[in-house]
Every structure is written in C-alpha cells, then in structure tokens.
Simulated assay, not measured.
Amino acid sequence: MIVRFGYVAMSVQLKNASPSQTMTVKQFEQIKDKEAAIRKLERIAYSNLENCFRLLKHNLAHDITFFRLSSKLVPLVNHPYTEGWKYEDAIASILKEIGEFIKKHQMRVGFHPDHFVVLNNLNEDLLKRSLQTLVYHYKLLTRMNIDPVHRCVLHVGGAKNGIVSGLEDFLENFEKIPSVIQQMLILENDDTVFHIEDVLYLGEKLQIPVVLDIHHHDIHQPETFNFLNVWNRVVETWKHSPLPVKIHVSSPKEEANDKRHHDYIDVDRLMAFLQEIKGTVSQLDVMIEAKMKDEALIRLMKQLEEQKDIFVLDGASIQFKEN
C-alpha cells in the first residue's frame, strides 16, 4: 500500500506567498469608480494565483503532489457588488498555466469550501448562495482544464430538525443541483452532527465518495460499529472515482476530545490507523490538516523514516513492506 501525503492551502516555509489576499466590502465601497474596484479585485486574484503557482512549485521540490487549493483565490466572488463579473476570463491565462503544471507533474488538487456552503438547508436563498460558491469552484477547475469530478469536499450541514431530517433534506436538495456539480462533490464526516455512518448513508445512496476524517471520527462516532466494516464501505464509495481513496488527518490540540487542530500530526495515532487498514487499498491519499501546514508534513515524514515496516519512497510518500 502506497500512502501519499498532502497539506492545506498555504505554506509556513514559503514567505510572502498567501493565495488568500482579499479586499473587504468596505474597501470596495471606498473606490468610487466601480470598474476600477473590479480591476483591483482582478489584480488581487491574479496575485493570489501567482502565489498558488509558487506553492505548487515549492511542493514539487519536496515531492508533494497532493494539495488542497485555497477557496479564497478570488476575493468578493458572488457578492452583490460584483454581480455579472466575469472573473474567470480575467484570470484565464494563469489558470491555464497552473493547470498545465498540475497535469504535467500528475498532482492531485481539490477544494474544501467553507462551512457556509450547505446543501441540506431548505432555505432557497442559502441553497442558491451555496450553489453559486460551488459553481465558482467548478469554473476554477475547468479553466485549469482539470476534470472537476470528485474535487470538492463538503460536510453534510446542520440538523436543526434532527439527524434523519438533515439527511433527507440533503437528498432533496441534491436532486435540485446540476449534475456537473453533483459529480464534483465528496462528503466528509464531521465532529459534532453527522458521524461516518450518517455520511455513508448519503454516499452509498447518491454514489458520492466519502472522506473519512480520523480526528472527527475519534470525537464523534456511532455508538456501536465495526471499524473495518465501516472502512470497507468508505473504500467502496470510491469504486467509480478516477481518484484514489482520500482521508483527512489531524490531531487534537490538547486533550483527546479537543476539536481544535494541533500544529503537528500524532504519528502513533496515524500509524495505528494505517496498520489497521493496510492492504485494503493500493494507494491512499492523506490530507494533513495541521496548523503548521507543509512544516507538519515534513516533520511527519522524518518521524515515519523511523518506523520499522515502511519504506520512504520520497519526500511525501511511503510504502508498507510486505509481510
């Protein structure tokens, strides 16, 4: 089993390379000429993408070919002030260049829109805004000439009227969104409301791949379950995906049930998981969600070098030795 590691959105090693520079609504309002304000937004977006490109080159130098792109590449996108703005045309050239680089080096990239993107809320306004955000991610991927299938991780949402109602509302709204957006989605278990079996209910019913978040699962899980059975069901949801099975890994900041992410990854907890699922997949992509970003990945790889039953393949991937 080959395990490839990636990290989220920005580097702590690479200086002055934020892909999430922004402009506030107040700053936008202060520019009297709205065309000039839009041009400024385009310059910020272009700068974000230049930094994103720098991050990808930095990653390649460390053998990191798995990366979550920032969802904040284009500021004030879908805000009422920017309605009708063809941002994708203004940044088309650099998106194309980034996409060519990603494809050339066989990188896996994706997005994880923030918690405001909710598909199980029956409020039509909220659903519309969530769909607009997903369309924005779709446009970025297609302008990079990257197949958008299974590139966007979402949580199920809220459960104001209970878990069952929350799941059924997701099913109802899922049918309302365009098929290209449906195909872009992956679902993740959360640490408060929808545990892994809830998410598998949707994943299996709608043929959406499921990402197991180990930290979330440790904090919030079914009362009784067989882990290997649950894991095999997770793997099965990826059967028709063009991409390898993906999981999320983070460690609690302090006590075991702390929902906050630690700066680094607990190598013992990770290895216990990998040993348990060893041999169930040929490749596993592990997204590290740690405060120290690439630094956490590099430190983890040094710790993995000391493990007895693995080979380190390169700066960001390992392989288990055969028994």
Rank of each mutant, 00 (worst) to 15 (best):
M1W: 02
F5H: 08
Y7C: 12
V8R: 11
S11I: 08
Q13T: 07
Q13P: 00
Q13E: 15
L14Q: 13
S20G: 11
T22H: 01
T24L: 03
V25Y: 08
Q27K: 00
K32T: 09
I38T: 06
E42S: 15
I44A: 07
A45C: 01
Y46F: 04
L49G: 04
N51L: 09
F53N: 12
R54D: 10
H58Q: 13
H58I: 02
N59W: 11
I64M: 14
H79S: 08
Y81T: 09
Y81C: 03
E83Q: 13
G84P: 05
K86P: 09
Y87W: 15
E88F: 15
A90D: 11
I91D: 02
S93L: 15
L95R: 00
I98M: 11
I102K: 00
K103C: 03
K104Q: 14
D114I: 05
H115R: 13
V117G: 10
L119P: 04
L126F: 13
L131T: 14
H137S: 11
L141V: 07
R143E: 12
V149C: 13
L154Q: 08
V156E: 09
N161C: 07
I163R: 10
F170E: 14
E172A: 12
I177Q: 06
I177V: 14
V180M: 06
V180K: 12
I186Q: 13
N189L: 07
D190C: 09
D190Q: 01
D191M: 05
V193S: 11
Y201H: 10
P209T: 02
H215S: 01
H215W: 01
H216C: 00
H217R: 02
I219P: 13
Q221A: 14
N229A: 11
N229F: 08
N232P: 04
R233L: 01
P242R: 09
P244G: 06
R260I: 01
H261F: 00
R269L: 15
L270Q: 05
A272K: 06
F273T: 11
L274D: 12
Q275N: 15
I277W: 14
I277Q: 12
K278S: 14
D285N: 00
V286I: 01
E289M: 08
E289L: 01
A290S: 13
K293W: 10
E295D: 14
K302H: 15
L304S: 07
F311C: 07
G315N: 10
S317A: 03
